[in-house]
Amino acid sequence: MVAGRDTRRWRKLKVQFRARSAEANHPCWLCGQPIDYDLPRDHPEAFQPDHLHPVSTHPEHAEDPANLRPSHATCNKARGNRAPLFGLGRQTRQW
Rank of each mutant, 00 (worst) to 15 (best):
M1A: 08
A3N: 01
G4Y: 02
G4W: 07
G4D: 02
R5Q: 13
R5V: 10
R5Y: 14
R5L: 10
R9E: 15
R11E: 05
K12G: 03
K12N: 12
L13F: 07
L13E: 00
K14S: 15
K14E: 15
V15C: 04
Q16D: 04
Q16H: 12
F17P: 02
F17E: 06
A19R: 14
R20I: 10
R20F: 05
R20H: 12
E23T: 02
E23N: 14
E23H: 10
A24Y: 05
N25R: 11
N25T: 10
H26R: 14
P27C: 02
W29S: 08
W29M: 06
L30N: 07
G32F: 02
Q33C: 04
P34G: 06
P34H: 01
D36A: 11
D36G: 11
D36T: 08
Y37S: 01
Y37Q: 01
Y37M: 00
L39H: 06
L39P: 00
P40L: 03
P40I: 05
R41Y: 09
R41N: 10
R41K: 09
P44Y: 05
E45K: 12
E45D: 14
A46E: 09
A46D: 11
F47H: 11
Q48Y: 03
Q48C: 15
P49W: 12
D50L: 08
D50S: 09
H51K: 08
H51W: 11
L52S: 03
H53L: 12
P54L: 07
S56H: 01
T57D: 05
T57E: 08
T57V: 08
T57C: 05
T57I: 04
H58L: 06
P59N: 11
P59W: 02
P59S: 10
E60Y: 07
H61L: 15
E63W: 06
E63K: 01
P65E: 11
P65Y: 10
A66E: 15
A66Y: 13
N67C: 12
N67Q: 10
P70W: 03
P70L: 00
P70C: 05
S71F: 00
H72Y: 07
C75R: 06
C75A: 08
N76C: 00
A78N: 07
A78D: 02
R79M: 07
N81D: 15
A83C: 09
A83W: 10
P84C: 04
P84K: 01
F86N: 06
F86I: 08
L88M: 03
G89K: 09
G89L: 09
G89R: 11
R90I: 10
Q91Y: 04
T92A: 14
T92F: 13
T92H: 14
R93Y: 05
Q94K: 15
Q94W: 08
Q94F: 07
W95M: 12
